[in-house]
């Protein structure tokens, strides 16, 4: 009973995250506004990061909630460390996601500056208008 339920909830969470990824990918590809593309990009990166955290999750014996990977007794004995290994989650995905969130924020800041620059030069943030302007400039150049 309990393993089936844990498995069902875990799988539903995976499906929800995949659908979030797909919806935001649609937003990046199909919506015309550049700012809307940026909003979709933040949701896209956050969904993939949540997926990494979900892979690092585990359940303890008896389907108990695990604890964060922090040594709380200083100095610890061998017994404390064995207990932590039996109850803690995987710290590696958390460390990787920590850096990924900061990098995605830096990339978003650069893209926001680029969007502002595009608006100052061309007066629009609509991808179709920009493509039209470029085509017109190419025709005039010939």
């Amino acid at each position: 009973m309990m393993p089936d339920m844990a498995r069902f909830v875990y799988n539903s969470l995976i499906v929800i995250l995949v659908f979030n990824t797909a919806i935001s990918l649609y937003g990046i590809l199909a919506r015309p506004s550049l700012v809307k593309k940026l909003i979709a990009l933040t949701i896209f990166s956050d969904s993939l990061n949540s997926f990494a955290i979900l892979v690092g999750y585990r359940l303890c014996k008896g389907f108990e909630q695990p604890v964060p990977p922090i040594v709380t007794r200083i100095p610890p004995t061998q017994e404390h460390i064995s207990k932590l290994i039996a109850t803690a989650v995987d710290p590696l995905p958390q460390a990787l996601v920590l850096t990924a969130i900061v990098i995605s924020l830096a990339v978003l800041a650069f893209l926001a500056a680029l969007t502002l620059r595009i608006y100052y030069v061309s007066g629009t943030t609509d991808a179709r208008s920009l493509a039209l302007m470029r085509a017109r400039a190419a025709v005039e150049g010939e």
Binding site: A6, R7, Y10, I14, V55, G56, Y57, R58, L59, C60, K61, P69, I85, A88, D90, P91, L92
Partner: peptide, 11 residues
């Protein structure tokens, strides 16, 4: 993917 009950060796 399944929710694991033990830690990986690296962790």
């Amino acid at each position: 993917l399944e929710v694991p009950l033990t830690l990986r060796d690296l962790a």
